[in-house]
Amino acid sequence: MSDREAEVLKILKSSSQISRFKEFLKKMLHHRKALAGLIILFSLVLIAVVGYFAAPYNPFSTNAPPFQPPTRQHLLGTDYLGEDVLSWFLIGTGTSLFVGFSIAIISAFIGVLVGVTAGYFGGQVDNVLMRIVDVLLVIPGFPLLVILSAFLPPTLETTIIVLSILSWPFLSRVIRSQTLSLKQRQYVLASKLSGLSGFQIIFRDIIPNLIPIIFINVIFLAVAGVVAQAGLAFFGLGDLRSVNWGTMLYWFEAEDGIVYNAWWWLIPPGLGIVALGIGANFLGNAVYELTQPSRGGQ
């Protein structure tokens, strides 16, 4: 094959990839579950943006009486110090989403790199990487998180780094098995014949085809990250002065919100987490149904 032919082949491939991606986006917007998922996630982002620019109070200002049920001035009441729960929730949504998506992006990066490398190169590389993944998957996650966080400085950055390091193994397994099947396709063979190196093939042929899977896993990793960070904060670990869903629940528990029947303080952060989970699952199911339409079910 001449250089020119290889060039033409590449252009053909890349244009078909772009149009496939566009087509995929179009299908997403016409899929009921996908649309519902997107709307939920978008609303949460909107809440975060509102919180960042227009929270009604400084979350640390304590001018109101403590444990006050919802009023006109404080739509979600006040906490044990008289801080405005609505402002905590609005700003906390931003922090929680930021933490979740930071973790998701870092760990997806590691997971994709490890999975593609193991799947594409196979042999000893695959063996060693997958053994490491096995070990990480077997060690119970939450206790490991607790012990790491207990010994490292209690900052939000620590939490993000620790969770990123522990979150990638499962994704790397998924990516590896996908890579194993993609590697057998005709167009990968064509690229090989045209003399592209292993890494070129990975970045041009393999990873672009994994984008729907990576996308949905980033969302799931973000949900898992938000929940894990909240769990850690609830356990008294990490930066407890940070305003997020986890610290809201921690202070509720630590300052006896139960005794004061302070449901207005308990419900918002939990509903935030549930909404995020439901949104992600809708989107995940939709992507699964759209990418594997041959499978039975609906």
């Binding site: 949900v223 929940v227 909240a230 769990g231 609830f234 629940l249 509720f252 528990e253 139960i258 005794v259 029947n261 449901w263 308990l266 419900i267 952060p269 939990g270 987490i273 549930v274 995020l276 989970g277 439901i278 699952n281 809708f282 199911n285």
Partner: peptide, 21 residues
């Protein structure tokens, strides 16, 4: 989908608030 999205500790707090308080 709904149930698995519930964080354990939040659900525990809700149950505690509703059924024990």
């Amino acid at each position: 989908i709904g149930l698995t999205s519930l964080p354990y500790f939040w659900l525990a707090l809700i149950f505690q608030l509703v059924f024990a308080v």
